[in-house]
Write a protein that binds this DNA or RNA. Structure first.
Lengths: 218, 218
DNA sequence: AATCAATTCAAACGATCGTTTTACTTTATG
DNA sequence: CATAAAGTAAAACGATCGTTTGAATTGATT
């Protein structure tokens, strides 16, 4: 299937995903997008009403399958454990592994998703947050069963840490070679997912320290 | 000292730091900055030559003291351990704790720093990377001494994970209340640093799994 | 008071942005 | 073939951007 076989709408989303990843969202003009897609400048507003609509389309094309896959693997892990608590490794893996697979099949999407976390002006942000709440709720429940001795507040923050590590790793992967002066390279394979899973699983299990708050207002 | 006592240059940096954090860098116009600083539109180019120069000034005003404090604490930890390997907790704390202190004293800077990680168009990015290399080199050496059984490649990536968790936590702190539906709140005090330190220390110490690579090129 | 550099100011520059308009072409349907 | 809908085209819209210009103002020094 050559690119010409795709509809104009699909070619616009493809071009936008690539350019948003390379140049950033605000720095990419609709003229850049339409030029790469071989379409007219007016086509974006014809199909997506606005640039924000295009951004949303780029995001929603991939995020739904990604989160569905996460929940599918989480269900699998919980069902495999029957009535016992699910394996912590399986929980974390169900969250990390689908994203590394996406990182291989859709190299640009994860970078765009990472960017969107830091784009404050678009009201898109609230939609993103709401959409993530279902995922967060499911994983919070699973983690509580797997780690009953860890206070839920700590579980919440540790999940937060995992998300940050994941976003940073997937979206800055291309710069790692620079930072490490060529010594290390991001290998978008299962090894990298394993590294993050090992790290996060150990972090999740860390003993909870007594709060050293002095009793004053936080 | 009222704001009026500060020089125009300082007021421009202050205003830019605040607006860059709230609205993003590209979304903030120089007219926004100069209006908030009570300065003329031309003053930015007068003092900083360009908008990029202003961005750079905002960043470099704070990043140097932050990294110096990190290295100071790291030196302290290594000296306290004398000829034995330094404590892993002290190493991680020396990296995390200065940033949480900055998060309290300069609430907007960490968000700007987080944003800059995702701003691709500015050649500023390469400068940022180069500047970070000294820090990375020092911590790599310290971690190798503290965790001699962990391969250096894994240490590198685990440090990468810690950085991602930290950036994500500090810069998305304001949205946590939304994501958790009001249940949790970012407390910019030592408790939060302790949470991240505990998580990261345990993650650093995680046993290294055998690579499940099929023998192809890594 | 006169001089000169440093700073501030209002105004405009050229460029680019997202978006809209209007007309033209294609495709499907009777 | 006639007709209406869907899609594409070129061109311009108004707005905003970073930047520059050149004059006015300030403040210190002689």
């Amino acid at each position: 299937m050559t690119p010409d076989d795709k509809s104009t709408r699909d070619r616009l989303i493809d071009a936008a995903e690539l350019l948003f990843a390379d140049q950033g969202i605000e720095a990419t003009s609709l003229r850049d997008v339409t030029a790469k897609a071989g379409a007219n400048i007016a086509s974006v507003n014809y199909y997506f009403q606005s640039k924000d609509g295009l951004v949303q389309a780029v995001y929603e094309r991939r995020i739904a399958p990604l989160n569905e896959e996460r929940l599918r693997l989480l269900d699998l892990a919980e069902r495999a454990a029957a009535d016992r608590p699910p394996s912590l490794e399986a929980i974390v893996e169900s969250f990390v592994e689908p994203s590394i697979r996406f990182c291989a099949s859709h190299p640009n999407f994860m970078r765009v998703a990472g960017r969107l976390q830091f784009e404050p002006n678009l009201e898109f942000r609230s939609r993103f947050i709401m959409q993530f709440q279902e995922i967060a709720k499911r994983y919070e429940a699973a983690l509580r069963r797997a780690l009953p001795d860890i206070p839920v507040e700590d579980l919440f923050w540790r999940m937060h840490f995992l998300i940050g590590a994941m976003i940073h790793t997937w979206s800055n992967a291309c710069d790692v070679e620079l930072v490490s002066r060529g010594k290390y390279r991001f290998s978008g394979d299962a090894d990298m997912a394993k590294r993050l899973i090992d790290f996060a699983v150990a972090g999740m299990r860390a003993p909870v320290a007594k709060k050293k708050s002095t009793g004053g207002k936080g």
